[in-house]
Design a protein around this nucleic acid. Sequence first.
DNA 1: TATTAACCTAAAGCTAGGTTTAGGGATTAT
DNA 2: ATAATCCCTAAACCTAGCTTTAGGTTAATA
Lengths: 150, 150
Amino acid sequence: MYTIGQVAEMFDLPISTLRYYDKQGLFPQLIRESGIRKFSENEIEALRVIECLKKSGLEIKDIKLFMDWCAEGPATYSDRFQLIRNQKERVEAEIKQLHKTLDMLKFKCWYYSKAMEDGNEDTAKASIPYGLPEDIRAAYDNSHTQSSDK
Amino acid sequence: MYTIGQVAEMFDLPISTLRYYDKQGLFPQLIRESGIRKFSENEIEALRVIECLKKSGLEIKDIKLFMDWCAEGPATYSDRFQLIRNQKERVEAEIKQLHKTLDMLKFKCWYYSKAMEDGNEDTAKASIPYGLPEDIRAAYDNSHTQSSDK
DNA sequence: TATTAACCTAAAGCTAGGTTTAGGGATTAT
DNA sequence: ATAATCCCTAAACCTAGCTTTAGGTTAATA
């Protein structure tokens, strides 16, 4: 059993955040002794799940839903499964999106180092396709090559 | 040259958002004709950059900084380069983080399909290491195996 | 005995990133 | 000429996710 202060330290979270989570219903099984919160292994695991679901982009009110399901027992396994699977897919999509963002940033990185080298953006501007995936390149192709190409 | 409505449609953004961006100073080169905004190729490219930097986690006020640098010419190439490189690193770190989140979700996915199969979490709870990376597993190891192991 | 530390609550406050509202002007279609 | 459709502004409003404030209880220490 841990006090709120101990848990705050374990997870490197402000105490106020833990109280806020509790108020939002994220610890439906939390027990109090004369008003004071007692965090058991159950809440510690809950917090790990909370952090994971938060990173996956789930809102607090939906995390509460999940935690309520956890408190309800085996009848909710399939709800919990589906929620987790949805978040899994969401994260997979997010990773794909971030890879595109990364490609763009890599291109701009190259672009500005070229511009620094040259003292201007002329050559850089002319060399769009460097390492960019098709769909991003497509946007560039028709914005920068109005003269030669069509 | 495009009107705000055309740009909104091109980028699938509400007009109000474009006006908000303008108000925050994200289009320092934007020209108006008798009060009406005229978006040129320059602003279109700016918007592509804005969307990219937003996805990379940059705040509006820092995006404004970048756009101001763009309007200032070659003297700011190295500032721009450094900002982009920082965001690139940030996105790389974010992708790594999301992979960890994904591993956790995959584990929970497996966990709940096992629980559904069994009608309880007993076997699932006992089989922690399934596909989890070391650092996440470590947290589980000492929370679930107090009895057997130490 | 007094003070320090760690807990508690309710409620107000804050930030980012928009969105909505209320009111107005200019151009085009009927 | 009148009605619809764009455009404009300023300012109020909204949401999520906390954080801060103000005031109070309990328990161990000096």
